[in-house]
Design a protein around this nucleic acid. Structure first.
Lengths: 210, 210
DNA sequence: AAATGTGAAGTTGTTCACAGCT
DNA sequence: AGCTGTGAACAACTTCACATTT
């Protein structure tokens, strides 16, 4: 298997891989077997040359004159992203946003299972029925280790986020999806993706000014 | 007032402006009056030269030898982003994620008020107490027009998202925060910021692979 | 002395143009 | 003929080096 040097692949290209995958899934549902870079790129909202360039970072998957096999390309993307097997994920901070995300089913649809939620005061949290078990913070380390959890979602207030991140990293987490409005400092081998909903709106606010 | 040509300012620089603002707010709470580009940049997780370059897109705000006035710089950023006055926002699609975001108070803290929520079947939606009024889709156009709403949040399923976007644009919305896992096609003068939570996790999944 | 502001250099990411398969 | 794969050209963004101001 050709293992490309991971560091030379643009982060954005990896991100777009996920977008392509969504489009391929839709195409498959519509019964399409093959697709050209032109058509897939249009669906994904990018230029066809960019799509082809992105794919070459990971290998060669097309047939010249014909296009890409929908099924096969989707398979290679899930292989590459590592979303074949179900990844266990935990969530820390069951406040407004945290409980919101717990009731959101969108993660599971894509192969991620939230196997546990953590909060400083689990007793105070109002929980709907269903959903993952809720623990106090003292269980964090133990559960992460036991389930070999590599990915975590942080939805605690800004003031607590860095401390939580430190605990997660110490327990073995190497991927963090951070919703706290703060820049997290972590070791090099840990990846942080930050989503800040207020900033997304604020950003729009700039562009709608006439 | 120096009005720089909006199109020549990198989108990323505008985004970082929001990050700087968050840091300035924290500094202000801690009682700091001035801050150097070095210190602010560290807090924001960027290089100091980048911070300075970003700011020059909007004017000159520092004092050489001293640094930036925290209060004044924060003021200029809110002016620039247009978040001085409270922006009315609506939300379309009160499913799992939509109702999640409605109960999330983070938007209001930053000067955005969700003045209305819309759903195909408002009767079916379980609503907690409080929060904005809930309407059927037939009211969408009228309410957007009446309140001169410019910004909207889309949390409908992928299959419905483009149609909703079209309605929003027709009613006068020019900024859309899109949570549907699909690429929206809109006129040039409309800005779309897409947030895809599943993709963020999927992306992490790639980087945690050893 | 300390720190900003900025043209120039460097780096990264995107698009072009076309060679090379099927 | 049609469409992919890719080196080279281009564009966008970041960082450097240093002149400039307080």
């Amino acid at each position: 298997m050709k293992k490309s040097p991971r560091s030379e692949i643009p982060r954005k290209a990896v991100y777009r891989l996920s977008v392509y995958l969504r489009c391929l899934q839709r195409l498959k549902q519509n019964g399409l077997r093959t697709v050209s870079s032109e058509a897939l790129a249009r669906a994904a909202g990018v230029k066809s040359t960019q799509l082809r360039k992105d794919l070459t970072y990971f290998g060669q998957f097309g047939t010249r004159g014909l296009g890409y096999d929908v099924e096969q390309l989707a398979q290679m993307i899930t292989d590459t992203l590592g979303t074949n097997s179900l990844q266990p994920v935990i969530l820390v901070g069951v406040g407004n946003l945290g409980s919101a995300l717990l009731s959101y089913r969108g993660f599971e649809q894509e192969g991620f299972g939230i196997i546990g939620a953590f909060d400083l005061e689990p007793a105070k949290v109002k929980r709907g029925r269903g959903g993952p078990p809720l623990h106090g913070m003292e269980k964090l380390f133990e559960i992460i280790r036991a389930a070999r959890v590599k990915m975590a979602i942080i939805t605690v207030p800004a003031a607590a986020a860095q401390a939580v991140a430190n605990q997660l990293v110490a327990a073995g987490v190497t991927g963090i999806l951070n919703f706290a409005p703060i820049v997290l400092h972590v070791p090099e081998d840990v990846t942080v993706n930050s989503v800040n909903l207020a900033i997304e709106l604020e950003n729009l606010s700039y562009f709608i000014q006439t």
